[in-house]
């Protein structure tokens, strides 16, 4: 009888959970465990990481034994540009200020969709930037730096 994974979705899901659990156990290796009756800082993380590894193993086992759906195709374009947009914002907001960071982030994220249109995007980005600055800086009074430091 040939061996095959009957539900890849569950099988790989379980495997990843086990990996996360192992990373957690490795990361909490230096923490003290039980001291007498008292939990140490490492007790609970190891307890739950162990439990997670166990659950992950069960999920993977179910994936081996029970028929289930295949893993849906991963989109590349969407996640890629969304992640790029988030990184852009995180890296740009300090050195460039809120206005430029917002504008650029909007333009990067809009590329995640195939239906993007250039002129419309440029105008929408400006409108959204104005809205966000108005809302966060003026209406909510949050202390954001709006422009790059060299412009002051």
């Amino acid at each position: 009888m040939g061996f095959r994974v009957r539900s890849p979705q569950d099988f790989w899901g379980g495997i990843v959970l086990i990996i996360i659990a192992l990373i957690a156990i490795w990361a909490s290796r230096d923490l003290a465990g039980m001291r007498g009756f008292a939990f140490g800082p490492g007790t609970a993380p190891r307890l739950f990481a162990g439990l997670l590894a166990f659950c992950g193993a069960l999920v993977a086992l179910v994936g081996l034994l029970q028929d289930g759906p295949k893993i849906g195709a991963y989109a590349i374009r969407g996640p890629l540009f969304i992640v790029a947009a988030i990184l852009t914002f995180a890296l740009a907001v300090r050195p460039l200020g809120l206005v430029f960071a917002t504008y650029v982030t909007f333009l990067v994220s809009i590329m995640a969709s195939k239906e993007m249109r250039l002129i419309e995007s440029v105008i929408a980005a400006a409108a959204m930037t104005a809205f966000c600055v108005g809302l966060f800086t003026y209406l909510l009074g949050l202390p954001f730096q709006l422009w790059p430091p060299f412009m002051y």
Binding site: I86, A90, V93, T105, F106, S109, A112
Partner: peptide
Amino acid sequence: RLLFPSIIVFCCIGIYSVNNSPTDVIIAG
């Protein structure tokens, strides 16, 4: 196609505003 970039931008600013921390934005990503 115009809605989702607005939401992304809004979320980024929102997360950043909690602690003024760019790292938080990356963690959310």
